[in-house]
Each structure stands twice: as structure tokens, then as C-alpha cells.
């Protein structure tokens, strides 16, 4: 059955306070070359048949919150 992989990210304009903390922590570990850490969410599920319209509907109604998040998806086998 095909696997759908949805990536959900906080909109770029919004402060990601958790990402900032990880950013600072990486600096603390000596990875000074790192910047702009953002934390998103990966949601995977199986779906058959695959219907992109229905995937978008799921994303907009539940998996992502369009007020604060962007999403993209891919279908992998």
C-alpha cells in the first residue's frame, strides 16, 4: 500500500521558540556553523487509493493548522 509522507512546518514568519532552543544547544555543543533551526512534524500513513485532493483535505482539516503551519506531502512506495 502506498505511503504518504506529510511534512508540517511552522510558517517562516513565526518565531519557533523550540527551534531557537535547539539552535542554542547546538552552539553549546560546538556546532557554531549552525543557524536557523526550525522544528517541524512528520506524519506518515498508508493510503489506497491515493487521492491528492483527499490528502490536502486531511492536511487542512487536521494534520496541519493553516493559520500557523505550511505543509507539503509526497507519496512514497
Amino acid at each position: 500500500m502506498p505511503t504518504v509522507r506529510v511534512s508540517v512546518r511552522l510558517k517562516p514568519s513565526l518565531l519557533d521558540s523550540a527551534g531557537r532552543t535547539v539552535n542554542d544547544s547546538l552552539h553549546g555543543l560546538g556546532f557554531a556553523e549552525v543557524d536557523g533551526v526550525r522544528i517541524g512534524r512528520l506524519v506518515e500513513f498508508q493510503m489506497d487509493p491515493v487521492d491528492e485532493g483527499r490528502i490536502r483535505s486531511m492536511c487542512e482539516r487536521l494534520i496541519a493548522n493553516p493559520v500557523i503551519e505550511d505543509y507539503e506531502f509526497e507519496v512514497v512506495d
Binding site: L10, L14, L15, S17, A18, R20, T21, N65, V67, I68
Partner: peptide
Amino acid sequence: ALLLNEAE
């Protein structure tokens, strides 16, 4: 919407 507090 409501997000994680700024001070984490």
C-alpha cells in the same frame, strides 16, 4: 492560534 510560550 496558540503557540509554545516564547520563553519555552
